[in-house]
Design a protein around this nucleic acid. Structure first.
Length: 197
DNA sequence: GCCTCGATTTTCT
DNA sequence: GAAAATCGAGGCC
């Protein structure tokens, strides 16, 4: 049988990004997610900032193995990992290879903007989805969505910008492995949580 | 604009 | 007991 022929995994199915897209090196996926469309229910926008966290990375929740909180990081690629940060905020991640995930840090708001203003209680569009805790607040993401697949409602993740200009730099808010340039951002946008150096 | 501080869950020492 | 992949408010310049 012809088991030696390479099989090309499609990265999109009916417009949705698929398991073949997510099940790659987390740094590549974090880079490639910049410029994609993320929608949850009626709210969403363009992903403009991400960070990669891998299994061999001491800044990652998965570094010391599986716990109740991080179990979704060891589940299927293309599912959500949602965790509580600093006891208050939720953070939304996209699971890649086992023990790795991409943190979504910022969106450019595009749809459901009035709903997002109502949820966020702010008057500045840059405070809607600029920052990981703000993204989950605006899109109503909480622990109830932890572990769910991203290729069906309430999620919608699709390619959007054709050839986004992506820049890279060190991650934010971590104390270990601080020098890895695993934060990615869209170059020409004001919806980034902090400037790249 | 900058800085400091406090809220609260999860994990580790 | 303390630190962590954060945010918003209040004080100051």
């Amino acid at each position: 049988m012809g088991s030696c022929s390479a099989r090309i995994e499609p990265h999109e199915v009916d417009g949705h990004l698929s398991a073949g897209f997510y099940g790659r090196d987390v740094v590549e996926v974090a880079h490639d997610l910049v410029g994609t469309w993320l929608q949850v229910g009626s709210t969403g926008g363009i992903i403009v900032e991400t960070e990669a966290y891998s299994a061999e990375d001491s800044a990652s929740h998965s570094h010391r193995g599986r716990t109740a909180r991080n179990a979704s990081m060891f589940g299927p690629a293309g599912h959500a990992y949602v965790y509580r940060s600093y006891g208050l905020h939720w953070c939304f991640n996209i699971v890649c290879l086992p023990g790795s995930a991409v943190l979504v840090r910022a969106l450019k708001p595009e749809v459901g903007i009035e709903t997002m203003y109502r949820r966020r209680q702010v008057d500045d569009i840059r405070k809607l989805c600029t920052g990981p805790g703000r993204v989950t607040s605006a899109l109503a993401i909480d622990g109830g969505l932890d572990g769910l697949p991203l290729d069906r409602p309430p999620f919608l993740l699709t390619r959007y910008l054709a050839a986004p200009a992506v820049i890279a730099g060190p991650r934010i808010g971590i104390t270990r492995d601080v020098d890895r340039p695993w934060r990615f951002g869209l170059r020409d946008t004001r919806f980034i949580s902090r400037a790249f150096r």
